[in-house]
Write a protein that binds this DNA or RNA. Structure first.
Length: 554
RNA sequence: UGCCCGAUAGUAUAAUGGUAGUACAUCAGACUCUGACUCUGAGUGUCUAGGUUCGAAUCCUGGUCGGGUAACCA
């Protein structure tokens, strides 16, 4: 095998660990979500990082639910998380774990620490403990319970476990250093009492381990070699290492490595805010196509490949940055451009009557499904006397750089005929209601035998067979590049009022019939659209996935 | 205010003491049965002041700016 050239600092670290012969040369990572909400694009970065990095080194990755706080966690979230990770294309095989699997072992280890005088039960109130912890500049004070004997602690801890004490009555703390400059080392909490049923262990426990106590031990028991987490856990690392040192029974050590979480311009990523958007009805649900959730992106038309590619392109560093949403949009455009079937759809129809075309005749013209992929085949599209084009493809008084249809001008209807506009029909208010055109029967297929050229080609839908439908255009949810970054303003002030536009007079060619739910199409020149799962063929609804470049300066 | 972390084009990243590259974005041009897609080209960058060195984005020191951290959340 070729030597691996590290692409980021984490891979670099792994290369060094491997070169030093650490942990029997294993690479084993884990993705450890708390099942308290839906996964979003930020989690996707972490999923790709954990699974991708391990796989690069021939290692494996666990899925582990970090479910140590029963007040926030639900089975519904567990299910959605598994679905989303699978959809992204990753497989944890038989390595599905829960932090709650380790409640017994964690308890035993706590007893061990108590026995060795390294943990104690504290009966002080939360306020007192907090006050005693000191400040960053002032050392903390030791708790009066700090020197309770192991023997006593053992009995008390047992009572804690069996429910003798009420919530908040006492906690188990690690005995480390109340004057450490790192606040996390000032006798951190290991257990608290929560008389709440747990989504997996039910009423078995009323004491639950804290993150810092549970996470490193879970890593250790699973044989994790590289425990990748986000930057805010950087100052927790000494504590992570402290617990692992106390637990160790061999040379093996998991290593915590931190990277910066994903931020994207004009998106909000915090679970609290996403929940607010759903709860207060700014979006329809967690899977609203405007949401940054995995399920939202899926409905929007994002493919797993495009998201994985995006995760690869944003890179891994410790820099707090904001990635331009344009990169994400580029990734899906690039992927769909290769895969999406082309279809003609008119979103703002202008009626055209081809006056020299026979009344009852319906011809079929031959269209290419994907110009970049012959294997996607061809289709027949009906053509008739009455057709629709985009209203913006006609100008009664064409601007200088406008090449499309205008009075007296000839253009091509894609795959069909050249047509020439002869007459503009208006209502009493002067609004254009239809155009009368003539077609050249010799140009069938789109080319003139005499070799004359036209400057523009238009997409169109024939009234015969056309499916009248509604098209929903989903745009960015926020107008500001950084809706979170304004200290004095709420992020809701930057909601984009035009993030959802409903176009209800659209026509689409009949070829869309039978399309699978959530299949992507490219509408000629209009962009990429995704068939919504809850639509019927008779009335399809599309999610616009990405906008094309701004053509307004035409 | 202590401790920890970070700083390379507009944005995100690479270069691990030896020519500062790449992608997105932007602009210009070419092509085209859509002005899309594609292709070609262009501009712009090492936070700052010192030091070490033949040579510093890289190593050292000071400064500046930004982020994290003082939950019985994770």
């Amino acid at each position: 095998m070729d030597p691996i050239v590290p692409k980021n600092f984490i891979q670099q670290q792994i290369v060094e660990d491997l070169a030093a012969g650490k942990n029997d040369m294993r690479v084993h990572t884990r993705f450890p979500p708390e099942p308290n909400g839906y996964l979003h694009i930020g989690h996707a970065k972490s999923i790709c990082l954990n699974f991708g990095t391990a796989s690069l080194f021939g290692g494996i990755t666990n899925l582990r639910f970090d479910d140590t706080n029963p007040t926030k966690e639900e089975t519904e979230y567990v299910d959605s998380i598994m679905e989303d990770v699978r959809w992204l294309g990753f497989d944890w095989e038989d390595r599905l774990y829960y932090a709650s699997d380790y409640f017994d072992k964690l308890y035993d280890f706590a007893v061990d620490l108590i026995n060795r005088g390294k943990a104690y039960v504290d009966f002080q109130s939360q306020e007192v403990i907090s006050e005693q912890r000191g400040t960053p500049t002032r050392p903390g004070a030791e708790s009066p319970y700090r020197n309770t004997t192991p023997k006593e602690n053992l009995l008390i801890f047992e009572d804690m476990k069996t429910g003798k004490y009420n919530e908040g009555a006492c906690v188990l703390r690690a005995k480390i250093d109340m004057s450490s400059p790192n606040m996390h080392l000032r006798d951190p909490l290991m257990y608290r009492i929560l008389k709440q049923p747990h989504h997996r262990t039910g009423d078995k426990w009323c004491i639950y381990p804290m993150y810092d106590y549970a996470h490193g031990q879970s890593d250790y028991w699973e044989g994790i070699t590289h425990s990748i987490c986000t930057l805010e856990f950087e100052v927790h690392r000494p504590l992570y290492d402290w617990f692992v040192e106390e637990l160790k029974d061999s040379d093996y050590r998991p290593r915590q490595i931190e990277f910066s979480r994903l931020n994207i311009t004009s998106m909000v990523m915090s679970k609290r805010k996403l929940l607010q958007l759903v709860k207060e009805g700014y979006v329809k649900d967690w899977d609203d196509p405007r949401m940054p959730t995995i399920c939202g992106l899926r409905r929007r038309g994002y493919t797993p490949e495009s998201i994985r590619n995006f995760a690869d392109m944003v890179g891994i560093t410790k820099v707090d940055g904001v990635t331009d949403v344009a990169l994400l949009e580029y990734c899906i455009r690039e992927d769909l451009n290769k895969k999406a079937q082309r279809l003609m759809c008119v979103t703002d129809p202008l009626k055209i009557v081809i006056t020299n075309y026979p009344e009852e005749l319906v011809e079929e013209v031959d269209a290419i499904n994907n110009p970049e992929d012959e294997s996607m085949g061809r289709r027949k599209v009906p053509f008739s006397r009455v057709i629709y084009i985009e209203r913006e493809d006609f100008m009664e008084e064409p601007a200088s750089k406008f090449f499309r249809l205008a009075p007296g001008r000839e253009v091509r209807l894609r795959y069909a005929y050249f047509i020439k506009c002869n007459e503009v029909i208006k209502d009493e208010d002067g609004n254009i209601v239809e155009l009368h055109c003539t077609y050249d029967p010799d140009t069938k297929g789109g080319n003139a035998p005499d070799g004359r050229k036209v400057k523009a080609t238009l997409h169109w839908v024939a009234s015969s067979g056309a499916i009248a439908c509604e098209v929903r255009l989903y745009d960015r949810l926020f107008t500001d590049p950084d809706p979170d970054g304004h200290k004095d303003k709420d992020f809701l002030e930057f909601l984009n009022p035009d993030s959802l536009k409903v176009l209800d007079k659209c026509f689409i060619e009949p070829s869309v019939k039978g399309a699978a739910p959530l299949s992507n199409f490219q509408f000629e020149r209009l962009g990429y659209f995704n068939v919504d799962p809850d639509t019927t063929v008779e009335k399809p609804v599309f999610n616009r996935t990405v906008s094309l470049k701004d053509n307004s300066k035409k």
